[in-house]
Design a binder for these strands. Structure first.
Lengths: 200, 200
DNA sequence: CCACATCTGTAGTGAACACTACAATTCTGG
DNA sequence: CCAGAATTGTAGTGTTCACTACAGATGTGG
């Protein structure tokens, strides 16, 4: 018994193309026709490989968050809570205005509100945003234990705050704000974290 | 020559219902069937009154921003830049988790990314968000002139920052964050503005 | 009371959507 | 080289979408 005809496309390359379409048009705004054209395949190949449109989105999100987590590991490796916030927000200002990608963040652009039948998508995106927030919170908990953050500081609140600013910057980027505008936002935002630092 | 059969529904009441549907499902996620049912009218009445789906959205946005502007006038009436930021962000924490409305902000939920043919919608929302930012900026310019904000402060950057935090809070609210979580974000965010205050 | 203008409900319209049936093709194992 | 398994391109499927034609209803001006 043979193993069948081999796939003629690279699933990861195709996923990158699909990711860009979802990033630019959102889950519901992206059509199968756009996706298959960008991926360079025909609908049956898409469905055989990813199940359905939502399965394709999840695969694209997995790939997106995987790359993002590598970056986040570098962010939380900064020596202080203040530097973590600065590295994160300044990095986001850069990434979200990188002309190599659509503006903004896939975890926001993917879909905040949806029609009936796609209610699952916003939850999926929110869950992945929450992962980043958790990682930040853990880092800030450590910073507090180390005496880097004030004893009165609230690491969870700080993490939520940095996460909220990131999302806000993503929306700004997608609606045309340039890199300098985002840097200014990041610069102001970092000062709030600085105020919670022991030597702030 | 007569004036024709009079309209049997109240356009403002119908708009409120349409606003809620757009708020919950976004522009593209809202269907004409959902809109007409919520408004209590049939499609021909909708099209006769508002032109098309996008015209209905614009009318709903006009109504939304009109109410919001009244509130914003109260916000910028606060005595200091810091109090303006606090009043705005704490008020947003409350409004975006008000069970009388869908969670979040219509100017975000309405549509960040869209499919082909609705590219105009995100611009429309961004333009209305920019109005609020401009109003904040003007208020912070005044605060700087009054010596309330430091001479080194950047009113435009501060306004952008507060606007970005507002948007981020809106996304958080729509993905399930409760009022207390938003209040914590607002509380941290205000501290950055406080640092730019002359007596901060 | 009649001509006319506008609204209302019913019942569709064509287009676009996500998804798939099917037959031809290309591989592996024996 | 042949049988079976998986992928491929073509060409659809039914459904849902925004939007509208039309006929009856309800008002105003003369």
């Amino acid at each position: 018994m043979g193993m069948g005809r081999p796939r003629e496309f690279d699933a990861e390359v195709a996923l990158d193309q699909a990711m860009e379409v979802f990033w630019r048009h959102g889950y519901e705004g992206a059509t199968i026709a756009q996706l298959t054209e960008a991926m360079g395949i025909n609908p049956p190949s898409l469905y055989a490989c990813f199940g359905n449109k939502e399965g394709l989105l999840k695969a694209a999100l997995d790939r997106y968050t995987k790359l993002r987590n590598v970056w986040m590991d570098g962010v939380v490796a900064a020596p202080t809570a203040r530097d973590v916030a600065e590295r994160m927000l300044m990095g986001i200002a850069e990434k979200q205005t990188d002309p190599a990608n659509p503006p903004g963040c896939l975890l926001v652009q993917g879909g905040i509100a949806t029609g009936t039948g796609s209610e699952n998508v916003p939850f999926e995106l929110a869950a992945r945003r929450a992962q980043n927030e958790d990682q930040l919170r853990d880092r800030f908990v450590r910073a507090k234990a180390e005496g880097d953050l004030k004893p009165t500081s609230d690491p969870a609140a700080l993490a939520r705050y940095v996460s909220a600013v990131s999302v806000g910057m993503g929306v700004m980027a997608s609606s045309g704000s340039d890199r300098e505008a985002l840097r200014q936002v990041a610069d102001v935002a970092v000062q709030a974290v600085e105020m919670q630092s022991a030597r702030g």
